[in-house]
Amino acid sequence: MELLISILIGILFAIGTYMMLSRKLLRIIIGSAFMSHGTLLMLMTVGKLKRGAPPIVVNGVENPVYVDPIPQALILTAIVIGFATTAFALVLAYRCYQELGVDDTERMRGNFDEH
């Protein structure tokens, strides 16, 4: 399963990078969202997958084996922060468009015609 997820991570990163190299704001934001999905899966995978029960203590079970809870704790934080930055970036894009009338990073310089 780790192999499968690694390949999926590779695809997510590849497409995220490709999107981030675009000039359009929305594409850049979507690209960063892909990267963050890829990162979440990567954190999970390097902690090994499916090696025990969910990390929830159930009374009466002898010598329980849980999956590693630490990547999960990290990812929980990462999801929330990823969401916060995505929301911020989206509103920034919206406001940029309102202020400047363009959504293309190259035209935001204002002297597009000179180049």
Partner: peptide, 26 residues
């Protein structure tokens, strides 16, 4: 560039999941 980054990320994940240098502190 995208494909190379994806390839790199895939390699890093595979290296990371097989890493035995440290014991877990879980």
């Amino acid at each position: 560039l995208g494909v190379l980054v994806g390839f790199m990320a895939c390699t890093v994940t595979l290296l990371g999941q097989g890493c035995k240098y440290f014991d877990t502190i879980a």
